[in-house]
């Protein structure tokens, strides 16, 4: 597997990722630093006092020099300090938030693939029956209904109607913060609604691709041969067809990953889940420059490596592909 060619390919991709991350972080750095105002200004803090503070934090220097200073730290894993909570180091903050987002995103990915592949396979096997039509229509509905609508529906049903313990105020446990206790089963339960809200959207595309590629594979000779040999249709499908049908599914994974990340941003803000997406919206409105840049940087790294892994898996699933 890991022959010389593959290693060279990986090295090339890593260089490309590093380049992308640098361009992205520079672009965001310039954008946030060119926003009017800053994190410090208030009714009391302006004029000379503000200038002093900007100078103290090196914010009165040219943006390029500030970026260079930031980059020097970032290479060593130091993403700078927060300006809202003055002096607090960013790296531990975003890493903690990343772990939260990863949990939500991971759960959403499971929902996406689980639902998408299952529905796609069933629809293909029952091609042109009502099952097929229902599932394909459901797939379109999945990516047509915005995640905040699904999330609201979930809250309405689970919080307001089924469990009206208090005066109806919506209570969503935040086990990530350790705020209300939690952990274990409660984490799983509280993950389910966000994960489904995100996953329904992204699973629609997966359903369609799985169905289409399954249909193509089923028509192919070796499946027909296997069937002719008397193997039962369902086992044939699962054993032979699915593996080959998954190749096109892999090809849309980068798009799925982007879709999930976007969903996570929205859902975190709806459920006030303290992850990267929530942090991004908060930090950009509060002009906590380093946090905004830090979140972008982490996303860029994440997407870069996610795509690399998908491409490598591609080669594993489909032996014809070599790097």
């Amino acid at each position: 597997m890991l022959n010389r060619g593959t290693l060279i390919y990986i090295a090339q991709r890593v260089v490309l990722i590093a380049f992308t991350v640098m361009v992205v972080s520079f672009g965001v750095f310039v954008v946030v630093h060119s926003l009017p105002g800053n994190a410090f200004i208030s009714d009391r803090l302006h004029g000379k006092a503000l200038q002093l503070l900007l100078h103290q934090y090196g914010l009165d220097q040219p943006v390029v020099i500030q970026y260079w200073n930031w980059l020097k730290g970032a290479i060593h894993g130091d993403l700078g300090i927060s300006l809202v909570t003055r002096g607090a180091p960013i790296t531990p903050i975003v890493l903690k938030e990343l772990s939260v987002s990863a949990m939500v995103g991971g759960a959403a990915l499971l929902v996406t693939i689980g639902l998408g592949v299952t529905f796609g396979v069933i629809a293909a096997i029952r091609q042109n029956t009502w099952v097929d039509y229902t599932l394909t229509t459901f797939a379109v509905i999945g990516y047509s209904v915005p995640s905040f609508v699904i999330a609201s529906l979930g809250i309405l049903i689970f919080a307001n109607w089924l469990n009206n313990v208090s005066n109806g105020a919506f209570y969503y446990p935040l086990p990530w913060q350790g705020t209300y206790g939690g952990g274990g089963l409660s984490t799983l339960i509280s993950l389910s609604l966000p994960a489904i809200s995100i996953g329904l959207y992204t699973s629609g595309q997966v359903t369609r691709i799985t169905r289409a590629s399954m249909l193509e594979v089923i028509q192919q000779d070796y499946i027909r041969t296997a069937r002719a040999k008397g193997l039962k249709s369902r086992r044939v499908t699962v054993r032979h067809a699915l593996r080959n049908a998954l190749v096109p599914v892999m090809s849309i994974m980068p798009s799925t990953v982007l879709g999930i990340l976007t969903g996570v941003v929205v859902i975190e803000n709806i459920f006030t889940i303290p992850g990267l997406g929530k942090e991004f919206v908060t930090s950009i409105t509060q002009q906590d420059y380093n946090l905004t840049v830090g979140v972008f940087t982490i996303y860029a790294v994440l997407i870069g490596f996610a795509n690399l892994i998908v491409d490598l898996l591609y080669a594993v699933v489909d032996p014809r592909i070599r790097y």
Binding site: L16, T20, V21, V23, V24, V28, V31, V32, S34, L35, P254, L258, L261, T262, V265, V266, F280, V281, I284, T285, T292, V295, F296, Y299, A300, I303, G304
Partner: peptide, 19 residues
């Protein structure tokens, strides 16, 4: 094009909106 694909689109949209 690849650089634009390397960041969640919603973040780009929000940043530009704020800018």
């Amino acid at each position: 094009i690849n650089i634009f694909y390397g960041v969640p689109p919603l973040l780009i949209a929000i940043s530009l909106y704020v800018l």
